[in-house]
Design a protein around this nucleic acid. Sequence first.
DNA 1: CAGTATCCTGATAGATACTG
DNA 2: CAGTATCTATCAGGATACTG
Lengths: 123, 123
Amino acid sequence: MTQYEHTCMIRGDGGSTVRAVLDRICDKWTLLVVATLDEGRLRFGELHRHIPGISQRMLTLTLRNLQRDGLVSRTAHAEVPPRVEYALTDLGRSLIPPALALAGWAVEHNARIQASRAAYDGG
Amino acid sequence: MTQYEHTCMIRGDGGSTVRAVLDRICDKWTLLVVATLDEGRLRFGELHRHIPGISQRMLTLTLRNLQRDGLVSRTAHAEVPPRVEYALTDLGRSLIPPALALAGWAVEHNARIQASRAAYDGG
DNA sequence: CAGTATCCTGATAGATACTG
DNA sequence: CAGTATCTATCAGGATACTG
């Protein structure tokens, strides 16, 4: 079977289902947060330290969106000082394999893309 | 083997390789253009008609970027009126399987995500 | 036909400071 | 510790008009 018979899944409803997912995972931090949480349950501050460059604000926003979509669970313990733990849900974990497929493609073809880009820009 | 041992591919270099790819395919039209070109070689106007809602400007920009990265080839025929054909390169075609993995996840879990979102927003 | 050229707007995200 | 609250810069992308 050719790939063509499958790409209807992308073009399906004019692309809006797939786009809805891309809108979710294609921002600057989401995939990184999901991959980091794949290590296991982590606290806010731990996440912050594990993801270089992310601001508190963006970590908060990213976690809220993931929680809203049911990919991440948030557990607040009634203690002082506060302790809040984040973990992937089953739904969140199910995103890992397709994300890895894309990551694999990225790693595998990155050099070639960079070369093509350099050639295009050069002349 | 757990998924965890693999997610280093995403977090690898602080996530910058994977992000470079996401930056490429996660804009509003790229994946749709690639999926459409998987049908075969198409002219600019044909692409325009096959992708509802895209403007000439965005189609041009998207095609230029894809061409720059070596995912799409552009063939201009010296005729009047002008005829320009676009097609996926081997590199472009290689993106289809991982893209389909993601699309499959999107289609499969979309309803659950929407439900979670509605529940979160509701209360 | 296959694009360019402009103008314009909303959303993304960085920096910084503050708080229960 | 785990966040909010503001302010701001940037930019993707839409609308519209024009051209070799």
